[in-house]
Simulated assay, not measured.
Amino acid sequence: MPSPVLSVLDLVPVRSDQTSADAVAASIELARTADRLGFRRYWVAEHHNMPAVAATNPPVLVGLLAGRTSRIRVGSGGVMLPNHAPLVVAEQFALLEAAFPGRIDLGIGRAPGTDPVTSWALRHGAGGVSDEAVNRFPEYVDNVLAMMEPDGVGLALRGRTHVLKATPSAGSVPQIWLLGSSDYSARLAAEKGMPYVFAHHFSGSGTAEALDLYRSTFRPSPELEAPRTFLTVNAAVADSVDEAERLALPQLLQMVALRTGQPLTAQRLVEDAEKDVADGLPESHQSLIDAMRRRWVIGDADGALAEIERLAASYDVDEVMVHPVAGAVAGTDPGSAPARVRTLELLGS
């Protein structure tokens, strides 16, 4: 199997030595690196009210990053549709596609991407991400797709049909993907003939089953004749295996905190993470780290590339989206993330 095409997923992490402005500046540098090295696409996530994640608003970030790059596709990985009115999402991404034609991806997810209180606030107190919004997810997906088409969609209201368009004169539409970490979106994407991505970088289990379900039940559509998917994976790559292991530690501890219900903080610097480990971790936490470590790509360039090729072959994909998780050492310029940049350089050279 030929080497897979590489792409990038970015949560815009915020370290303990950074402001939000610093984190955004570091992500702009990372996107420009991916663009220069020939990566296919660069996606940003949607998470809210998290001390270590500045990716709260994908369309704003997509516009910033697309405007600072020249070739790479830029998109959302993803917009959590139950948080938003479908028309607003359609308008945002139709306008981005108009500004950067042929370079915009819209990845759509069903999860809230936040805690219940923030979900409530996102909808101005109107029930948060209600069961209705989740249950109507397939309808909302259809609405987003139709509103971005040049002819728009007919809205029946008070006995009349009104034409509703995301933008007055669309010349093209973004590439639209369904995202998920369970089999729900796999079934829906197959039914609608849409591209689909399973969140392997986050879940780490059930990937093969979800992809098999998607492929085996796929129905061709006018937009897509055959199943289309790729793999996402966490990666920390450095000039040596030991250095990569060291740089991965802050994100490993961050994920342990998330999965065990500990208070979340800004991402630790490498030295602080090492001190936490030296002070001793509960056995259950170390077991979590070991399990995650086995699913991540951590190593030098040769080892990491070999592992990415193995994963691509194992899951039968021709594209792998890496989430660069390498942390920073004390004294790093706050507006940069050199270890994340180095991960892309070593993979893309």
Rank of each mutant, 00 (worst) to 15 (best):
L122D: 05
G75E: 12
S130T: 14
F100Y: 15
P86T: 08
E132I: 01
L122W: 00
E132W: 07
A111D: 02
S76A: 09
L81R: 00
R68Q: 15
V88K: 11
A133C: 07
L122R: 01
V129I: 08
P59M: 03
T69W: 11
I72P: 05
G77D: 06
A98D: 12
G63W: 07
A121L: 10
P112E: 03
R68T: 15
P58V: 11
L64K: 08
G125Q: 15
A66G: 15
E97V: 08
R110Q: 12
V88E: 05
L65Y: 07
L96N: 10
S76C: 08
A99T: 09
V74C: 07
V117L: 10
A121Y: 03
N135R: 15
A85D: 03
P59R: 09
V134Y: 06
I104M: 09
D131C: 00
I104C: 15
M80C: 15
R71L: 13
G128E: 05
D115G: 03
L122S: 01
P86F: 02
G113D: 05
T114V: 09
V79S: 04
G77H: 01
H124L: 14
A90S: 12
H124M: 10
P112S: 13
G107M: 03
P112G: 12
G127K: 00
R103Q: 02
E91L: 14
L61W: 02
L96R: 13
E97F: 11
E97L: 08
V79C: 04
V129F: 02
